[in-house]
Amino acid sequence: MARTLVIIPAYNEEATIVSVIENIHASVPDCDIVVVDDGSRDDTASLVCQHGGAELLSLPFNLGIGGGMQTGYKYALRNGYDVAIQCDADGQHPAEEIPRLVARIEDGSADVVIGSRYVADSDYHPSFLRRVGKSILSRWIDLFIGGGITDTTSGFRAMNRQAITIVARNYPEDYPEPEVLVILHKHGLKVIEIPVQMHPRQGGVTSIRPHGAAYYMIKVGLAIVIDIFRRYAPVGVKQ
């Protein structure tokens, strides 16, 4: 099996972090786990240390989800991992689905595989407003990257070495998931999605507040257009 790393960004996730690590080890025994502690003020870091089942990267202060994820991808790049999976620390992302994501990377069907909540056999039912918002966002992204992805905000993803190299270099700061798709598309990578059953959140709070939704839409919508025209430093990747 390819050297696989599961990246778990964590900010104040003491309620769930240990069970998330244990679930991953149970489902994917031969992968490494790295927890990126994004300046938590609770016991997240010490719980990870005590548990010992995961490596711990401690950011000196809170960078936000984008900066935290990027730290994990830099770690994956420097330590020579072939596949990196990003997985939430709140237990929503099903560890038992990780092997399916990795399998699609390993058989070469794509550079990036997204665990999607929308594809036919999933039963994720977000609120009406959330559905409308996400649908507008997905249409907007379709316009630029040619479609095929319905769940653009899913943070449950697997990436191959080439994708890791790109995101370690360029990672958007806040609400990064949709933008990352555009960046990967610009670098000519192939992204597919497969349906997964998400678990309900087990603890902690969502980073997207309801009144922030409008800001979210505008920020991400604009950022995507900018990403299309942005100049990126060339990334030396062997195919």
Binding site: V36, E55, S58, L59, P60, L63, G67, Q70, Y75, E173
Partner: peptide
């Protein structure tokens, strides 16, 4: 600032 913070985390690990 972000790059330095990430580097601190990676190096101290």
């Amino acid at each position: 600032n972000r790059d330095l913070a990430q580097e601190v985390a990676l190096l101290s690990h």
